[in-house]
Amino acid sequence: QVALSRTQVCGILREELFQGDAFHQSDTHIFIIMGASGDLAKKKIYPTIWWLFRDGLLPENTFIVGYARSRLTVADIRKQSEPFFKATPEEKLKLEDFFARNSYVAGQYDDAASYQRLNSHMNALHLGSQANRLFYLALPPTVYEAVTKNIHESCMSQIGWNRIIVEKPFGRDLQSSDRLSNHISSLFREDQIYRIDHYLGKEMVQNLMVLRFANRIFGPIWNRDNIACVILTFKEPFGTEGRGGYFDEFGIIRDVMQNHLLQMLCLVAMEKPASTNSDDVRDEKVKVLKCISEVQANNVVLGQYVGNPDGEGEATKGYLDDPTVPRGSTTATFAAVVLYVENERWDGVPFILRCGKALNERKAEVRLQFHDVAGDIFHQQCKRNELVIRVQPNEAVYTKMMTKKPGMFFNPEESELDLTYGNRYKNVKLPDAYERLILDVFCGSQMHFVRSDELREAWRIFTPLLHQIELEKPKPIPYIYGSRGPTEADELMKRVGFQYEGTYKWVNPHKL
């Protein structure tokens, strides 16, 4: 086992960053958080920038500027975001240094004079007029057009580079997404736009490419001749908990499936790229999406959770019991969808996408189930092999396979070949997804960000279904809070070829 401390991990990262040409360590950078008073800024962006600063992973002359409508001070920003920093008493001095680099400007999102004030403020910072500028839009999409237009007109660096990070949702359907994309691309070049999907920053999602293309053993079996089906799962054990009003506007397909799960599907299904260059990788992902037809209604199961009468606390409440959810809402909190990649490698292999709230566990994984062994000599005792990439929690890679049961006879039983990170790298604290992705933006690497043509294809696949749901308002199937979801989803999976045995229990190697 390799035991690495946080300091050692960050030392390795620093070495990698400083050796590259793309990370300008000594240049002045300004990180501007648009929507600095909001939840995302408070819980994710400010803490992430602090962790990067604490670990010495930001360029040395980096300033952080918050911008929002609320009249706040840096002290206010500190008060609301610091509880999420997880700072230790030993880091007190470092924390003071961090907040000394912070400033805040209040202004409207659609007022040109406010942006001119913001620009004057940035120019007044040390070497601010020639600094590289990175704008993070932690804002609702309704203000994107006004904000990007004003940034472009008043706040661009004339000497350094300018980059803009856009948070999902990128529209509600193909038409609104196209409108937003066309607007942003009329102001910024594609190499300046970073559409963030934080799932692409997760260690195991990034590991998929290495697993596939750096190991000879997987190449020959990664196709329709050997793989019976692919299941991509995202499960949350909690409901909307008072935030249903926002969720109800989008629903589970827009929230998770059309982005996170579809991105994971691309990494499983794509061909080997010409290189690890950002556009070479994204070219292959677009090719996969172009091979997927629009979702067919007979390959869809929609569910909505109801309270568990035997549960406790939140578990007793259904989705419609959330006071922020519109009365009688038919918005799905669970969806199972089957897609097919219609190309030579994957023809006929079902890709089953499942996601839901208020389920029995927290889990995100990719599961490849292989065909049955031909010419069975073990009297149907063999179960199908599976390769599982567990994204969260407890990152893991393992192969479910058959071995001989101890004893006199040739009785096979299920076991696993474990390729888990935790076994080799004991207690290594890896940077989280937002840390990686923000560092990628500083480096100018777009590999783990969504390109406009990729986004367009993703919406093309799901828009007809979303429009049909909005028009017909089908009643989702009720499922109990804390269950596996509607049984109809299991029946759909069985119908397209997935075999669920229920006889195997994964042993978490992190707890051995």
Results as ranks from 00 to 15, higher is better:
residue 387 L to G: 01
residue 303 G to V: 04
residue 456 R to I: 05
residue 483 S to K: 08
residue 257 M to R: 03
residue 292 I to L: 11
residue 335 A to G: 14
residue 335 A to E: 00
residue 378 F to W: 11
residue 507 V to Q: 15
residue 457 E to K: 06
residue 410 F to C: 15
residue 391 V to G: 04
residue 384 R to S: 07
residue 255 D to L: 04
residue 338 V to T: 15
residue 446 Q to R: 02
residue 290 K to V: 03
residue 486 P to E: 01
residue 365 E to L: 03
residue 478 P to D: 11
residue 473 K to D: 10
residue 478 P to W: 08
residue 303 G to P: 01
residue 468 Q to W: 11
residue 437 L to H: 00
residue 399 T to L: 10
residue 257 M to L: 11
residue 320 L to G: 10
residue 361 E to P: 01
residue 405 K to W: 09
residue 272 K to E: 10
residue 374 A to Y: 11
residue 254 R to P: 05
residue 276 T to Y: 00
residue 488 E to I: 09
residue 300 V to I: 11
residue 506 W to L: 05
residue 480 I to S: 12
residue 344 E to S: 13
residue 419 L to K: 06
residue 375 G to L: 11
residue 483 S to I: 00
residue 403 T to Y: 05
residue 264 M to F: 05
residue 341 V to E: 00
residue 445 S to W: 11
residue 447 M to T: 14
residue 365 E to F: 00
residue 372 D to A: 08
residue 257 M to C: 13
residue 301 V to G: 00
residue 351 F to G: 04
residue 477 I to V: 11
residue 466 L to P: 02
residue 259 N to R: 02
residue 474 P to Q: 11
residue 272 K to R: 12
residue 472 E to R: 15
residue 471 L to M: 12
residue 347 D to N: 13
residue 487 T to V: 15
residue 400 K to T: 04
residue 258 Q to L: 05
residue 400 K to F: 01
residue 319 Y to S: 00
residue 270 M to A: 08
residue 368 L to C: 08
residue 314 E to S: 13
residue 368 L to A: 07
residue 343 N to E: 05
residue 402 M to G: 04
residue 291 C to R: 13
residue 344 E to V: 07
residue 315 A to M: 14
residue 398 Y to F: 05
residue 351 F to H: 02
residue 258 Q to W: 02
residue 380 Q to L: 07
residue 342 E to A: 14
residue 420 T to L: 02
residue 444 G to P: 02
residue 483 S to N: 08
residue 357 K to A: 01
residue 329 S to F: 04
residue 384 R to C: 07
residue 325 V to L: 07
residue 263 Q to W: 01
residue 300 V to C: 14
residue 380 Q to E: 14
residue 315 A to D: 12
residue 415 S to V: 11
residue 459 W to R: 04
residue 445 S to K: 13
residue 314 E to N: 11
residue 382 C to W: 10
residue 277 N to S: 15
residue 271 E to N: 07
residue 283 D to Y: 05
residue 401 M to V: 13
residue 273 P to V: 00
residue 464 P to A: 10
residue 487 T to D: 14
residue 500 Y to L: 06
residue 297 A to M: 12
residue 291 C to M: 12
residue 321 D to E: 12
residue 375 G to C: 13
residue 348 G to N: 08
residue 417 L to A: 04
residue 326 P to Y: 06
residue 338 V to H: 08
residue 440 D to F: 02
residue 377 I to N: 09
residue 393 P to I: 04
residue 488 E to T: 08
residue 266 C to G: 08
residue 274 A to E: 11
residue 267 L to K: 05
residue 390 R to C: 08
residue 316 T to S: 13
residue 270 M to E: 04
residue 427 N to D: 11
residue 365 E to G: 04
residue 338 V to M: 11
residue 399 T to H: 11
residue 306 V to H: 14
residue 302 L to H: 06
residue 309 P to A: 13
residue 280 D to H: 12
residue 317 K to D: 15
residue 496 V to S: 14
residue 500 Y to I: 06
residue 270 M to Y: 03
residue 457 E to C: 12
residue 253 I to K: 00
residue 391 V to L: 06
residue 442 F to N: 08
residue 496 V to Q: 10
residue 256 V to H: 00
residue 397 V to C: 09
residue 502 G to V: 07
residue 311 G to M: 13
residue 416 E to P: 02
residue 359 L to Y: 01
residue 261 L to I: 07
residue 405 K to E: 13
residue 361 E to R: 05
residue 386 E to V: 03
residue 425 Y to W: 08
residue 275 S to V: 05
residue 447 M to H: 02
residue 398 Y to W: 11
residue 273 P to H: 01
residue 479 Y to A: 03
residue 477 I to D: 12
residue 277 N to M: 13
residue 424 R to K: 14
residue 330 T to M: 14
residue 453 D to F: 00
residue 488 E to V: 08
residue 506 W to C: 03
residue 344 E to L: 07
residue 406 P to L: 06
residue 497 G to R: 08
residue 386 E to A: 06
residue 377 I to F: 11
residue 380 Q to A: 15
residue 406 P to M: 06
residue 296 Q to I: 13
residue 483 S to V: 05
residue 264 M to K: 04
residue 465 L to K: 04
residue 398 Y to E: 01
residue 439 L to I: 10
residue 494 K to I: 12
residue 389 I to K: 02
residue 341 V to Y: 01
residue 264 M to P: 00
residue 404 K to M: 05
residue 354 R to V: 02
residue 448 H to T: 05
residue 465 L to A: 09
residue 482 G to F: 04
residue 255 D to H: 03
residue 265 L to M: 11
residue 496 V to E: 13
residue 437 L to W: 00
residue 435 E to M: 08
residue 316 T to V: 12
residue 464 P to K: 09
residue 302 L to F: 10
residue 295 V to Q: 11
residue 452 S to L: 06
residue 260 H to L: 01
residue 281 V to S: 06
residue 506 W to G: 03
residue 429 K to G: 15
residue 406 P to I: 06
residue 282 R to A: 02
residue 439 L to K: 11
residue 345 R to H: 12
residue 314 E to V: 11
residue 501 E to R: 10
residue 432 D to E: 11
residue 278 S to M: 02
residue 350 P to V: 02
residue 412 P to D: 03
residue 392 Q to D: 00
residue 503 T to R: 10
residue 454 E to V: 06
residue 302 L to W: 07
residue 333 T to F: 02
residue 276 T to F: 03
residue 424 R to L: 00
residue 395 E to P: 08
residue 279 D to A: 09
residue 377 I to C: 10
residue 270 M to Q: 06
residue 447 M to C: 07
residue 494 K to D: 12
residue 345 R to W: 07
residue 426 K to Q: 11
residue 299 N to A: 10
residue 434 Y to M: 01
residue 345 R to G: 09
residue 302 L to E: 06
residue 454 E to S: 03
residue 376 D to W: 07
residue 328 G to L: 13
residue 428 V to W: 07
residue 458 A to H: 05
residue 419 L to I: 06
residue 444 G to L: 01
residue 460 R to W: 05
residue 262 L to V: 12
residue 389 I to D: 04
residue 386 E to Q: 05
residue 497 G to C: 07
residue 443 C to T: 12
residue 412 P to A: 10
residue 488 E to H: 08
residue 344 E to F: 08
residue 447 M to Q: 03
residue 269 A to I: 06
residue 263 Q to V: 01
residue 507 V to W: 13
residue 417 L to G: 04
residue 326 P to G: 06
residue 440 D to K: 06
residue 262 L to A: 10
residue 383 K to Y: 14
residue 418 D to N: 07
residue 408 M to S: 06
residue 375 G to H: 11
residue 478 P to Q: 13
residue 311 G to Y: 10
residue 359 L to V: 10
residue 457 E to T: 08
residue 384 R to W: 04
residue 270 M to L: 09
residue 454 E to N: 03
residue 299 N to W: 08
residue 285 K to F: 01
residue 309 P to Q: 13
residue 485 G to K: 01
residue 261 L to F: 05
residue 436 R to G: 07
residue 309 P to W: 10
residue 389 I to L: 10
residue 457 E to Q: 12
residue 261 L to W: 04
residue 381 Q to N: 12
residue 363 K to G: 05
residue 334 F to H: 07
residue 441 V to L: 05
residue 492 L to H: 05
residue 308 N to P: 07
residue 283 D to F: 01
residue 418 D to G: 11
residue 447 M to F: 00
residue 399 T to R: 02
residue 479 Y to D: 02
residue 330 T to F: 11
residue 357 K to R: 02
residue 409 F to K: 13
residue 502 G to T: 09
residue 360 N to V: 00
residue 269 A to K: 01
residue 385 N to S: 04
residue 428 V to I: 10
residue 393 P to N: 06
residue 445 S to P: 05
residue 290 K to M: 06
residue 335 A to W: 04
residue 353 L to P: 03
residue 309 P to S: 11
residue 433 A to I: 02
residue 444 G to A: 10
residue 491 E to R: 13
residue 269 A to C: 11
residue 470 E to M: 08
residue 496 V to F: 11
residue 490 D to S: 07
residue 439 L to V: 14
residue 264 M to G: 02
residue 448 H to G: 07
residue 291 C to L: 14
residue 260 H to Q: 00
residue 423 N to G: 07
residue 301 V to A: 12
residue 278 S to K: 05
